[in-house]
Design a protein around this nucleic acid. Structure first.
Lengths: 319, 319
DNA sequence: TTGTATGCGTTATCAT
DNA sequence: ATGATAACGCATACAA
């Protein structure tokens, strides 16, 4: 485990010279550079990243916070993040919160303790006020709407996006519309409900389903939905996966789609295509990539930014 | 950004004493302990993890290597890993290889440069011989079969697992069986083909489809499959997602399942349920958890181990 | 062009 | 019970 000092001794130069060769600085004679190179090769030198990190104060790492690592909803975000990180020679420390506030805090504590250079939150339970108390320890970026000045944000505005989806449904001739959302009180769910009641004339409280996160939840919804007396003619889901679970279960029971019930998803996840799911496509991979870039640049002194992206309709056969 | 020396000065003790308080060592008088505690509170002390890491030589991090972060196949593995890591206060650095050998090498270079304590490979292109050259830098664990003594392995033996699936098909009365695999030359694909030709009497070269990774690939298969003259009566997929894409597309085209073609998946991914997919369930979350534990313990001096888990049939309506 | 000395923040060793 | 000091492995200001 040769270190920089061993190399210096072996090559009969100073550690500074070795460091210069290592970092490709100018002002090193060709001959010494060669000697150092040879010494490194012969002693099997490997630079110790931790020492570098302590010395420079940079970790080359960001922490990425999300509820579940295996939830398909976050897949494309993470993919975009990973691609951008690779380009900059950065590492991603993934942190799964399971929607626990204290897990979010632990993740941001990495920032405090200089274990990472920045934090990217794809979802959060914490208030922005609390989040701002961490801001002094490094750049923070979120994929949600409503962030304050100091915190960067790259997101789809779920109010606008939901309005867009509801209009697609209206233009397709559906007036009685229900919506299926994830967590009840999340900011995005609140925005979506707001859009629903603002936009849909026949909107009804009992046509709002909340607490649907997974495809299993979608399967479960089928039952209670079919039992309901007065049903909407179309359902707008906030997630393709929930929509797919619902769609699969309904088809299995022989319910005709969209004749008996129309379905619109949200995400544009590839698997939806196989089943002809009509959906609103959200540019999640772009968001991931941009989130990384924004955080990276903020670390280098740039100001925080807010970046709002839009969704587009991806036709299928379920409307 | 107060450090341990500032605290020492403020509390009028030595840095050693501060360090002792920090690490809850004995032999510190109650009074000094109190003074140090107060100093830390008043100066807002935060321990610098990088310095600790350089000093102790432990990073508290493992790198997790996999082809795609957003591929649902790896979701449950990663979930198990994350849960185990949380318990031990470890971080996971995720590394996406996109099946590039040089990306695998970069990931293992983290081990060389002391950026992580160990490496967990959910998939790999590299030979075990090359992998062993990294072993001296830290524990390595893989989720694949065939690892040498020095490298830990927690896996499903895909030969045995495939035989099990083929027998399920046989017992359900299917004799003409085809298989749909992922990458052509991966060790698991080779094992699966071996199982197929060993176990199925009517096995045929042209009933082996390779290169199918995603649900889109499954959709794409439908077309070429239906065009084929002589078709098998059942298809065994090495991935639920490919199976689902195929299933969805066939149903969309009005093909009756399992009457015209029976389908058996592999994984037991929750979304499969919604569409009644019959599948072989693989204990991937357990594997993830165990992979972490094994790596962790090996780091603490334990020997490398090999752990083979089995799959079980999860009935659906597609057989 | 090169080298000396110091700092980064912690833990570990060895006295006392 | 407490403290002075070395060690971890690098980068860098400053001097020459």
């Amino acid at each position: 485990m040769a270190n920089i000092r061993d190399i210096a001794k072996y090559a009969d130069v100073s550690v500074t010279t070795v460091s210069r060769v290592l970092n490709e600085h100018p002002y090193v004679s060709k001959e010494k550079r060669e000697r150092v190179r040879r010494a490194m090769a012969e002693l099997g030198y490997l630079r110790n990243q931790q020492a570098l990190t302590l010395s420079t104060g940079r970790t080359q790492r960001f922490v990425v916070v999300l509820p579940y690592l295996d939830h398909p909803y976050y897949g494309l975000f993470v993919n975009g993040l990973a691609k951008a990180a690779l380009q900059r020679d950065y590492r991603l420390v993934m942190w799964q919160t399971e929607y626990q506030l204290d897990q979010e805090r632990q993740a941001l504590d990495l920032l405090k303790h200089r274990e990472v250079d920045g934090a990217i939150l794809l979802s959060h339970t914490m208030t922005f006020d609390e989040m701002e108390t961490y801001r002094q320890f490094g750049p923070i970026a979120v994929a949600t709407v409503g962030a304050p000045q100091t915190i960067s944000s790259v997101h789809v505005d779920h109010y606008t996006a939901f309005v867009a989806g509801l209009r697609v449904l209206a233009q397709a001739g559906y007036a009685e519309i229900g919506i299926v959302l994830s967590r009840q009180d999340s900011p995005s769910s609140i925005a979506r409900q707001q859009a629903y009641f603002d936009e849909v004339e026949l909107a009804r409280e009992r046509w709002v389903w909340t607490g649907y996160l997974t495809s299993e939840d979608g399967i479960g919804l089928a039952d209670s939905f079919l039992r309901q007396q007065e049903r909407p003619r179309a359902l707008f889901f906030s997630s393709d996966y929930v929509a797919l679970g619902f769609l699969g279960e309904l088809r299995r029971r022989g319910v005709s789609i969209p004749d008996e019930i129309a379905i619109l998803g949200f995400d544009g996840h590839p698997i939806g295509q196989a089943f002809g799911l009509s959906t609103m496509h959200s540019p999640n991979e772009d968001i991931g990539r941009t989130l990384f870039d924004v955080t990276f640049e903020e670390m280098n002194g740039a100001a925080s930014v807010t970046n709002s992206l839009t969704v587009t309709y991806l036709p299928g056969t379920t409307l």
